[in-house]
Design a protein around this nucleic acid. Structure first.
Lengths: 223, 223
DNA sequence: TATATAATGTGTATGTAATACACAAATGGC
DNA sequence: GCCATTTGTGTATTACATACACATTATATA
């Protein structure tokens, strides 16, 4: 970071995103591989500095497009990380964001000069030795996601357009780290009146295919 | 703010606290009167700059002691305010905190050079033309308090040591901005097994006095 | 074509919590 | 002693959460 650049001279404010998606029934998070020091060759959460002419949300979306090529994500701040030693070079606080995107909308743009080497990791496969305090940020984001999946309608953003009931249940079980009874889960979800049976079936071999559901248009929040 | 001071040169990070308490059955918030420009003579939420050798929580507690003389508060961050125009002099982001203190613990220290003119306002009497974007921060803090009163045990910190069931219900009704049935509220709260009947009665004239309750030692969170 | 395999889909009974609602009891003031 | 005011209590109904077992639909294979 060039601290002479007047856009963020001595600014010390970073935004950092834990971007979640679901695809092939797995919950995944996007990481970027560092190519420079410090923490060269370590994985990190996509992040960047806030310019003085933008708010943090704008900065976070701009950084995501620049560094990962991913556009049109839903983001929400969840925690500020401000340990004075969290960055070895200079004092940097980080505004932590949760990002949500569904895998249908996932079109990674062309690489540019700023684009980093990014990859989706299953939640269980996230490396433990990440750059900076990003491991801590990731763990706290997972906790924030638990709350949000129960209290908001981010689920609609997270899931692909069509999904089966077992897939939906699986996403809940992975995020909340607990298991549900299949019959009760289905009953509860259907009576929330959020889902629409598309009449179509999953294409799968070897056993009975599941019904494909989608979210109703204009369905209200879960709460 | 002296931007040459190396402790927070060009730092641009503020912490700001919405400190709540309950006394005489009323929910109140602490405001400070500005004596300097900008916004001279307007009320503001207690706030201050984060030094480079401390995290935000430490800075918030230090500022509260310095500016208001109030020590030993429970604080929790709830939102970052980062509109580039929120402060007219320079780019300042604000980490918003909710603070909770019970009125028994409220010993305001002696005035010092830095101490501001502070006052407790009932939630309904908070002035609408506050300094900076502090009105917006206050409104968002009230919303965050609604969530926290339902999902955490801040209630124990908020209330004085002894309180009556109608007082408790009143705090809930003010914060959540809705009314409860007296019988059901009491039943629900007692079955949570958080309260202890002290056997004492409220001292009041003109009608039946209410029983004084206190929180049980080591009682678990409400959730 | 009959059977096995592997998953999905469905219904009912029970317990627990939320809601709705009306009257009796304790104090102070007159 | 009676009134005014506010607190304290119980019960019936409804909605939601939990526990649990068997039938159905598809493919694979003998």
């Amino acid at each position: 970071m060039d601290i002479k650049n007047p856009l963020y001279k001595n600014q010390g404010i970073h935004v950092v995103c834990s971007l979640f998606t679901v695809n092939e029934g797995k919950v995944r998070i996007l990481l970027a591989l560092r190519s420079n020091e410090p923490y060269s060759n370590k994985w990190m959460l996509p992040s960047g500095a806030v310019y003085n002419n933008e708010d943090c949300e704008t900065a976070m979306k701009r950084e995501m497009i620049e560094k990962t090529g991913i556009d049109n994500i839903y983001i929400e701040q969840f925690h500020v990380f401000s340990n004075p030693k969290r960055s070895p070079l200079m004092r940097m606080i980080a505004i932590g964001y949760i990002g949500i995107i569904n895998s249908d909308n996932l079109k990674i743009k062309k690489k540019t000069e700023k684009t980093q080497n990014v990859e989706w990791f299953e939640l269980n496969d996230v490396p433990t030795d990440m750059a900076y305090d990003h491991r801590e940020i990731f763990l706290k984001a997972k906790e924030a996601l638990k709350v949000k999946i129960l209290q908001t309608d981010i689920l609609k953003t997270l899931l692909p357009k069509y999904f089966t009931m077992p897939e939906l249940q699986n996403v809940y079980e992975i995020i909340l780290e607990k298991n549900f009874d299949r019959r009760n889960f289905r009953k509860k979800f259907l009576q929330l009146d959020l889902l629409e049976n598309t009449g179509k079936l999953q294409e799968i071999k070897g056993h009975r295919p599941a019904i494909l559901y989608k979210f109703k248009e204009n369905s209200k929040d879960i709460i």
